[in-house]
Computed example of a mutant assay.
Amino acid sequence: ELAQRHPSVVGNLDGAPVQLRYRANRLAVQKDPRYARLAEPGRQIIAFDPRGRGTVAEVYGDLLTARHVSVVVPGSDIDAGTYDRERDPYGTPAGMATSLRAATGGRTAVVAWAGYTTPVGVGLDAATGELAEAGAARLARFTTGLTAAGVGTPALFCHSYGSVVCGLAAHEAAASDIVVFGSPGMRAGSVAALRTDARVWAAKDPSDWISKVPNVEFLGLGHGPDPAAEGFGARRVPARTAHGHTGYFAPGTDSLRAFATIATGGDVR
């Protein structure tokens, strides 16, 4: 009854039953013509908020029966209107989620989580932690809400500014693994400073422009050391055949193969 009367509340209520959230968000989406595509049959929307630029999270696979679960956390320029865009698909949470699920042979359920307000471009918002702090609180609630609803502890795959979000959420989020790629930093000096029991992984391909971003944090600007640097302490993910800042989930890349291994509980040597 509450889902019927207040779909926007129940659809975003972390810890509520998964199927109930799907039903509530289907009703909420149908009320907003801008996002009619999200109401198409078969889509499983587990979070939706049309206010401002909009936030959304979509599930691929069955969260309640899958042995392994992953959550994709995106970086800048992602919102409810762009999270599943056709252009540059492997730079979107929807494209990364579908690619990861395919690479595991459908053995995982994957959430494309565009659940926070991301920076636009590479300006001041991207260089500071304010949006990441707000996003981290949301991510922690979302992941602990999944486990409260009977979903397995997820692996987090965090792209670009999304890795700042994951770094700030690490000590509170429910996560088996935290995988960062194309990261400007995690606002932590080392894996130990993240205060998490999750396995922490990092990938950076040789052609990623993020390497040109200074890995410093001073007076609130910058996000600290490079997680892919040896001294940080993260487990390394091979990314020799990935290309650019958004190519880590491209089919056939060594990074995607490694991500699939991590997503299914394996180890990468």
Rank of each mutant, 00 (worst) to 15 (best):
P7L: 00
F48E: 08
A80E: 09
I78S: 05
A24T: 01
V10K: 06
G54S: 07
Y60I: 11
A192Q: 01
R67W: 00
A127P: 09
V122P: 00
A94N: 07
P184Q: 04
S255D: 09
P214K: 08
T246S: 10
E40R: 13
T261M: 13
R236E: 14
Y90I: 02
R51A: 15
A263L: 01
T147Q: 07
L27Q: 12
P93F: 12
A228T: 05
A132S: 07
P89L: 00
G115D: 08
A173Y: 13
P225D: 03
R26D: 15
Q19C: 07
L139E: 14
N215L: 13
L100D: 05
G252M: 05
R23M: 03
R199P: 11
W113P: 00
E133R: 15
A242T: 04
G52K: 08
R141V: 06
A242E: 02
D32C: 14
A263E: 04
D79M: 11
V56T: 10
G52L: 03
E58A: 14
Q44T: 06
G189Y: 04
N12P: 09
D197V: 10
H223W: 09
A134M: 05
T196E: 04
T108C: 03
G42M: 13
T246D: 06
R187G: 03
D79K: 06
P41Q: 08
T144Q: 09
R236H: 14
T55N: 09
N12T: 05
T261D: 02
D49Y: 15
S183P: 06
A97T: 10
W209N: 09
P33T: 10
D267W: 02
I46D: 11
Y60T: 12
A28R: 12
V71K: 08
A239S: 09
A112F: 03
D32A: 11
T108S: 14
G121K: 09
G247Q: 06
H223M: 01
I178N: 01
D177S: 12
A136G: 11
V120H: 00
P7M: 05
G42D: 13
D208T: 07
I46T: 14
R23F: 12
A47P: 10
G11E: 13
A263W: 03
V111K: 07
L221V: 12
N215A: 13
D49I: 13
F142H: 11
G167K: 02
M96L: 03
A3T: 02
